[in-house]
Structure formats: C-alpha cells, structure tokens
Amino acid sequence: MEVKIKGMKKEDFKDNEYIDKLVDELKQSGQNVVVGKLDQLINWGRSNSLWPLTFATSCCGIEFICLGCARYDMARFGFEVARSSPRQADFMMVAGTIVHRMAPVFRRLYEQLAEPKYVIAVGGCAVSGGPFRKSYHVVKGIDTVVPVDVYIPGCPPRPEAMFYGMMQLQRKVKVERFFGGVNRKKTREDFFKENPLIAEEEHVKE
C-alpha cells in the first residue's frame, strides 16, 4: 500500500519506521478489493479533513496560532476548521505542558472527542515533561494519560516541524482500515486497561 501525500516525497517519510511496519502488517493480512477501495476512499477523506481542537496551554499554542496564519496556513491541507467543541474535532494538538490539575480535564476532553480521534503531543512538555520534568506538578509525558499518535519534539517546535508531524498523522490515518483489519480501537482499550480511570465516586468513598 503506497501512501501518497502531496507536496512531500515518499523518501522524506522513510525515516518513520513505525508507519512502515504498520503498512507491512497490513500487506500481510490481505484484504477484499471492494472493501479495500472503500477504505481508501474513506481514509482519503479522513486524512485530508482533520479538524483540530483549539487546545493550547502554553508557548506551543502560540506557534499553533502561527500555523493557522498567513505564512504557514494550515488551511491548505484541510486542517482549517479548528473547532472549539471537542465533539466536532478529529484530533488534539496538545500544545503545551499538562500539569496535575489539568490532567483530569485533559483526559475528559480526550474522551469527549468523537471517534476516530487522534492525539499529537507537541513540544517537549507534552512529550516527556520537557524542561519541567523534575517539577512536582507536571505530568511526565501525556502518554501516561492518553494514547498518543504522533510526537513532535521541540520547545516550542517550529511550525514546519508541526506540519511534518501533522503529515505523519495524515499518513497514519491513511494506512488504517475503517472496515475491520487494523484499527486502533484495540490498542486504545489496552491502554485504558493499563491506565484505568479512578471513578470519582470511588475516591469519595475513600
């Protein structure tokens, strides 16, 4: 399965072993022609119409604004419609530090996103805690709270780097399958099994 993204050559993506592995897995499992074509159509639509949630906590958020503005203009790729309501967004750019107090809010926001949903961790803070890793109040990487699809390092990453990350996400969306086969639901269920939510009531009982 060749993944095509306009404006960037395949070679530029070659360093991404993770996606190549995913594609190989898909090739082995084989697929019905009709379903495969339909999948391709749907994935084409999905990957070209990823609407971000307007979510920013700190410096990276400002670079995210710059991403939408005239010089970088993410509208060109179909990322245009930044929705404020998580119900209508497709992915979350976690631009900035997530701290202890924000973690449950952030988790809820993630749960409010409608399927299919993706998370991009933008910047050092979201990836690992960054410069604030040693702090008493900072979550050491948002992947302990929600499953993350793409990591964009940098402090803050340049808008070009954000584009690269967002295109990797597009690429990831393109190799997925809507009708059976590899889809992300299972991995997400595993994730939540490992990191269960403590119900509010349980805590109150304690």
Binding site: G45, R46, S47, N48, G78, V81, P116, F178
Partner: peptide, 15 residues
C-alpha cells in the same frame, strides 16, 4: 476539500 470533509463527517462517531 469539501468532499473530503463530507466523507469524514459522514463516518464520524455520533456520541
């Protein structure tokens, strides 16, 4: 672009 949006929104989950 708007066709892509249409495909996306058609199969988006209804929560």
């Amino acid at each position: 672009q708007s066709f892509a949006d249409m495909f996306k929104i058609l199969i988006k989950e209804l929560i």
